[in-house]
Simulated scan of single mutants.
Amino acid sequence: MNISDMKKDYENTPIPDELDFIVRKTLKKEKDKMKFHKLSKNIITGVAAAAALFVLTVNVSPAAANAMADVPVLTSLVKVVTFREYTYKDDHHEADVKVPQVTGLDNKDLENHLNEKYLEENTKLYKDFLKNIGTDNLDKANLALFTDYKVILDTDSLLVMASEKTEIAASGSESVHYDTIDKKNQMVLTLSSLFKDSSYIDVISKNIISQMKDQMAKDEDKMYFIADGTEDGFKTISADQNFYINKDGKLVISFNEYDVAPGVMGIVEFIIPTEVIKDILVSDYYVK
């Protein structure tokens, strides 16, 4: 059986809607409990963090960042809070959509633009959800939508924000988008800005395929959809592939649920060894 056949078998395996709905809702609630306990502990121990941010969505190279390294960070206290929360619940449907708000930016035009964007995106998600549950063929179907955001890295130089979304229907899917922000130079990093040219796409893709094959060889529970000849599957990352830089200064490439693996694998990530990409990096300012 080839990869395409395995993928089709997996996707065609029936899962009772009620069971899938309950399981995913339970997992979501457990995640929320874990985040609440972690936050409570941070508050009690006085470790809650605040960051000075001035976000510019520009494609600036790390070389320029090196030259700007001595520029002082703005002293305004920037916070990310929940501005609005949309909720809905009945016997078959549930939604909890959190809208973040950035406060404390000196550039109020930018601050307003970001907050309007967050509000527009999440409001649309919620309105689309309400529209879907109102249709005749879905009024008794189990549907749920959850969105959230969190800070996964906060250092003197970098802040990594994750925007999470979980959608549950006959099946469910999880997705996350990362923003890696240079706090000192006040910009949002792009994947392409880390490299000298577009060769990073091929280099990183080959390493990820190698990691996939190695994981599957060592663990029978691991499965990835890898293109082989004419078969469908993962071939290459996109130029703007979802990524972040972790606490060790390593580049992490992220794929949403079902992108490159069965749903049971969830969101999958690959840490790219720095030695694989060091010759094509603009500098070692971000990736160590």
Rank of each mutant, 00 (worst) to 15 (best):
Y224V: 03
R24F: 09
L77C: 05
K165M: 12
I43L: 15
K89F: 04
T57S: 14
A141K: 12
D20N: 15
K31L: 11
F243N: 05
L130I: 06
Y118W: 14
A217F: 03
Y286N: 03
A64L: 11
N137R: 10
N42R: 12
F129W: 01
V160C: 07
A144P: 00
F255E: 02
Y88W: 04
I15S: 10
D202T: 13
K206Q: 14
A141Y: 05
L158R: 02
I226K: 06
V282E: 14
D109M: 04
T82E: 15
D70M: 12
D240G: 14
T274G: 00
L194S: 06
T147W: 01
V102S: 02
H113N: 12
A69N: 14
E121H: 11
D182W: 00
H37T: 12
S192R: 14
V102E: 01
L39P: 00
L153H: 05
V188T: 11
I209N: 03
V160S: 08
L19D: 11
V23C: 07
E275Q: 07
D202S: 15
K235C: 12
M223S: 10
I22L: 13
A144G: 06
E275L: 02
I204H: 06
A162L: 01
I168P: 06
K150R: 13
M212H: 01
L110A: 15
E164R: 09
P273R: 02
K33C: 10
D228M: 12
V252D: 10
I15W: 05
K31G: 13
A227G: 11
L159R: 04
G263I: 04
Q241T: 11
K218Q: 13
V71Q: 12
K150I: 00
E11P: 00
V264T: 08
V97R: 01
V80L: 12
D197N: 15
T180F: 03
N112A: 13
G172R: 06
Y178V: 03
N66K: 01
K29E: 15
T155K: 03
V160T: 11
L191Q: 03
I209K: 14
D259V: 04
V80E: 08
M161V: 12
D90I: 09
N12D: 14
V47T: 14
S163R: 07
T87Y: 02
K288C: 00
I253R: 04
T135Y: 06
T236M: 14
S205A: 12
Q186V: 02
V151Q: 06
E121N: 14
D219L: 03
Y258C: 01
G263L: 04
V276F: 01
I209R: 11
G134P: 01
G233L: 08
K89I: 07
D5T: 04
M161G: 04
N142F: 13
I245Q: 00
D70R: 09
Y286M: 07
F270V: 08
T103S: 13
D20S: 15
